[in-house]
Design a protein around this nucleic acid. Sequence first.
RNA 1: GCCCCUGUAGCUCAGUGGAUAGAGCGAUGGCCUCCGGAGCCAUUAGCGAGGGUUCGAUUCCUUCCAGGGGCACCA
Length: 557
Amino acid sequence: MHYNPVGQLEENLIAALEKARREMLQERGQEEIDLPPVEVEVPREKSHGDYASNLAMVMAGRLGENPRRLAEYLAESLDFELLEKVEVAGPGFINLTLNNNWLAEALDKILEAGQDYGRTNQGRGQKVQLEFVSTNPTGPLHVGHSRGAVVGDVVASIMERAGYEVYREYYINDAGNQIDLLGESTYLRYQELFGREITLSKNSYRGDYIIDIARELKQEHGSKLLEKPEEEAFIIAREFALEQMLELIRQDLKKFGITFDNWFSERELHENNKIQEVSAELKEKGYVYEKEGALWFKSTAFGDDKDRVVIKSDGSPTYLAADIAYHQNKMERGFQHLINVWGADHHGYIERMKAVMEALGYERDNLEIIIVQIVTLLREGKKVPMSKRSGEFVTMREVLEEVGRDAARYFYSMRSTDSHFDFDLELAKKQSTENPVYYIQYAHARIMSIKDNAGKLSEEIEKGDASLLKTEEEIELLKLLARYPEELKVAAERRACHLVAAYAHELAGAFHVFYNKCRVITEDRELSLARLKLVEAARIVLRNVLEVIGVSAPEQM
RNA sequence: GCCCCUGUAGCUCAGUGGAUAGAGCGAUGGCCUCCGGAGCCAUUAGCGAGGGUUCGAUUCCUUCCAGGGGCACCA
């Protein structure tokens, strides 16, 4: 079920304004004049009403007339059922104050919709593939990955509720050089466990987790690998390490509450000859050429800075080559839209991948990239240095264990992906008001406590009469609850998880204010029922919005 | 040198063309005979700098300045 009271109300209001404008132009014989669509906005200043329109000011320039006079005229002829007051103000704003007759129905519908409240059909079932995390399985997920992981997961959830059919996918780079290095590192550490002298190469992975894997390898195979030919032993070590790493990554993500619909193996592309096929296809189209022994993709033809190598002069494919095949595969699977979540260090790849889409015969906008800016970990106010190769990094798991899943997910969601993020461990660990997630969860726990207190009365919540809700705090809370589907819709359009996090915080705030001002359970049975109904709606929306972010809604704290 | 992100209150951040720029934390002062004080209320202070577009710019364009991240036949 889809119910979006505020969205509907705004649509109706815009339609009414458009009608007034159209009639005015007709009367003046100017209906052929081309004008931008009517817009309304919620003014910052409460005294400016519930909505304001710049309609007259936008028209004034075009018609060469005084905006205030146009506004007066439009205000007079506006016909809208919920209109309580209309005023012309400032340079020509039309300020609209509405009555609250729509709120009672909204409250009923929220209770009716329950956990489905917030769902809209904005996406119209569009099939979207969202690829995120996709880190190389050569080491555990570190703190930098966890931001992209949470953002990807939350954006997916938001879009699902806005009516998109979202498919979460993890691309496993299980082919190529870095996996060989993982295997080599593991094999060396394995040998070391038997007292052999080893020398790690410059590119070896040096983290302790490699030693852990080597120990498990020893557990599994004993000393048998030492007797096998080196090449054979190496492959066994490599495959073992790969499986271990993937399992580790899967477990880490699961602890974060993140699961994927599909784990896509790069190897399959190689094994099914997809890279050769797509290279040949692009060559046929003239988008690939040979130079200096290598095969180049002509990405400059689509706006990239320079052309890119797809097959190196030693005959091996680059990462890009596999990516071309992968994205072709995505589109062939019937997705209408692709979203990739990348770290800021990959921004330089956007243009070439857009070029790939075009070369493959798709629209460049079929592929959308969300760039998530860098995370810096702060411990005692100082940057924690991180480098995967040196093995010096803080893992996603450590952060999770330190601050908890709810706090971690909320923190990663609450900030715009465009902004760098300083993750202060000390701050995140504080279980105090400094941590917004506790503030929100507390509101939910408080509601549960009120319901307990209501006893038998809560069985009759449905009978509550919303027209008894008259105080400013009650109305503000109710309006905010009614706004939820529209908030989700906007967040989905903008792929902006921080808007949802901010809404959750705002809602909790509105509830706390209401709670302090309006006692719910009193001798006035009718008023108690009405307020209980409002509280129940707040509970539903709080739980729903926390679910989107992946944060628990505790009954007690 | 080129490309991307950021610069807003003491601190961390919202605010993608509107009227008097908002939250949280911090600081200061208040609020429980009453449903959870992990709460509420009040006070505090700010758009990096200069041009431009616009009736109107924190927002769009541009030039600087500052911080971060990229510019491989690596992944």
